[in-house]
Design a protein around this nucleic acid. Structure first.
Length: 485
RNA sequence: GGCCCCAUCGUCUAGCGGUCUAGGACACCGCCCUUUCAAGGCGGAGAUCGCGGGUUCGAAUCCCGCUGGGGUCACCA
């Protein structure tokens, strides 16, 4: 195998929505590939027929695409190492299993589930050190006539020696062979197990680096022995740290979103997610937080991947997402918001904003939102037919109903007579009005804010008024006055 | 339980024997700016580097033990 040729693979099994942990693995894979002008391959590991979920592959595709992780082979893309779906590669696995059978490195086993579970139960009861298959069929030399219905093929794990490898992130890994049992490589339904399939595929697909979750380190000796038995050179391995929930348990559904598609729906930007995920378990140095995809590609170094698991800190993601929102132009944001609202229409809007409106609004929310989904709450008053609020909120500190109505009256007059209804002129006039009425600017604006938005907290008032338009503002002022009457 | 992995502020991390009285970021607190809320600027608090032994002139950094957390022991990946 030519290791100067970088080929990495992301190997999801189509059993549900892609977990952020898996996607982070894909991201690291992609970074390695793009940094070396190597290939990023997506291989579907669907050897478990029972757990297969319809549509799961589409979700994988959508997740990868959303993050901009383009792939070179597999998942609809042909290549000379295909097919890229394991269920379509069955003969490859059975051939290899047969080869192993031939040279005595594997054997057929007819132990049924009942015997196996009894065995396990007994082992657990007796608290034996080695829980696992006892090698019952190992020396039986079963052939055709001895085999009733179904059988599995087990790999003969050596009883002596050690298996060792240099992991890219963990360094030297060493295991005593006698501690591993004879594991199944071919199931009774003719499908391979992960152990066989991944080794066979990684070999034939000429994968140079295998990145996978750390839950796989305990099966490292099995894979090493498989490579040895087959006489194949091993790829380089990197076992990635687990992504944890705030309570330090494995990040799962009960902690909230685990699928990147859910984050998309919640209004996170792919750029921010990309940046955040890249820094979860990896760092460039002690200072870099915001880093572009380009820099990531050129600077990513798998040996700097942390070996300790990391907690998924949504607060930091929020900050980062806000940072990305703020650092784009308001035009860009308005385009993003428009398509976001198209895909996930806000429930609190009574009508759809026009492009022009979204344009103006994006300026108002840009510095105020961390995720796209927060935008609609902030500006819903513009797109609602009716706004509701407690009339008492119109009355500012040190004011009463009467003086508030007075303010409303004067503002009403001003709004209907002002020549140009734009943010800047409104500001000048409103400030002058506050002055002439001898009330604090904040007081006057507070009342107008509640009257026009129904909220005590809103985007900048003058801009909001401009967006609402003269007529709508007048309408709202009248409503406010009647509420206090 | 066996085996394996891991261990620096609440969190993500920098650190690879002396420059560490441990740096950055998120979150938190205060001040400034300010029409509210944010954003931004400035500042603050926060880690005796899990604990105990070594090695060394010198250890967050190397070694051993302990403790804690995690993974794995399926005809799942």
């Amino acid at each position: 195998m030519d290791f100067s040729k970088i080929r990495v693979r992301y190997a999801p099994s189509p059993t549900g929505e892609p977990h952020v942990g898996n996607i982070r693995t894909a991201l690291f894979d992609w970074l390695i590939a793009r940094n070396s002008s190597g290939q990023f391959i997506v291989r579907v590991e669907d050897t478990d027929q029972a757990r297969k979920v319809e549509g799961a592959i589409e979700l994988q595709k959508a997740s990868l695409k959303w993050l901009g992780l383009d792939w070179d082979e597999g998942l609809g893309l042909d290549g000379k190492y295909g097919p890229y779906t394991q269920s379509e590669r069955l003969t490859l696995y059975t051939d290899v299993a047969e080869r192993l059978l031939q040279n005595g490195k594997a054997y057929k086993c007819i132990c049924n589930a009942e015997r196996l579970s009894k065995l396990r139960k007994k082992q657990l009861e007796n608290k034996v050190a080695l829980v696992g298959y006892d090698g019952h069929c190992r020396s039986k030399k079963l052939d055709g006539s001895d085999i009733p219905g179904s059988f599995v093929v087990r790999f003969k794990m050596p009883d002596v020696g050690i298996s060792e490898m240099e992991d890219l992130v963990r360094g030297h890994l060493e295991f005593d062979n006698s501690l591993s049992d004879d594991f199944i490589i071919l199931k009774s339904d003719g499908y391979p197990t992960y152990h066989l399939a991944s080794v066979v595929d990684d070999h034939y697909m000429e994968i140079s680096h295998v990145l996978r979750g750390e839950e796989w380190v305990s099966s490292v000796p099995r894979h090493i022995q498989l490579y040895l038995a087959l006489g194949w050179e091993m790829p380089l391995f990197a076992h990635l740290p687990t992504i944890l929930a705030p309570d330090k348990s494995k990040l799962s559904k009960r902690h909230g979103a685990t699928s990147v598609l859910e984050y998309k729906k919640a209004g996170y930007l792919p750029e921010a997610m990309f940046n955040f995920l890249s820094l979860l378990g990896w760092s460039l140095d002690g200072d870099t937080e915001i880093i572009s995809k380009e820099d990531l590609i050129s600077k990513f170094d798998p040996s700097r991947i942390s070996s300790a698991s990391a907690i998924f800190d949504i607060e930091k993601l929020n900050w980062m997402n806000g940072h990305y929102i703020r650092s784009m132009s308001s035009l860009e944001l308005s385009q993003i918001l428009e398509s976001y609202w198209k895909e996930f229409p806000p429930e609190n809007f009574d009508r759809n904003p026009s492009s022009g409106e979204v344009d103006k609004i994006s300026k108002l929310v840009q510095e105020r939102i961390k995720v796209l989904s927060e935008a609609s709450d902030l500006v819903a008053f513009v797109f609602k037919n009716e706004i509701t609020y407690d009339p008492n909120e119109l009355i500012q500190k040190q004011m009463d109903a009467e003086s508030t109505v007075q303010i409303l009256d004067r503002v009403d007059k001003l709004v209907s007579t002002i020549e140009i209804f734009s943010s800047s002129t409104i500001e000048v006039e409103l400030r002058a009005l506050a002055d002439s009425m001898d009330v604090k600017v904040g007081t006057l604006l507070g009342t107008v804010r509640v009257a026009t938005s129904g909220q005590k907290v809103s985007p900048p008032l003058f801009d909001s008024l401009e967006v609402l338009g003269r007529n709508r503002v007048l309408e709202l002022l009248h409503v406010a006055k009647s509420k206090l009457a």
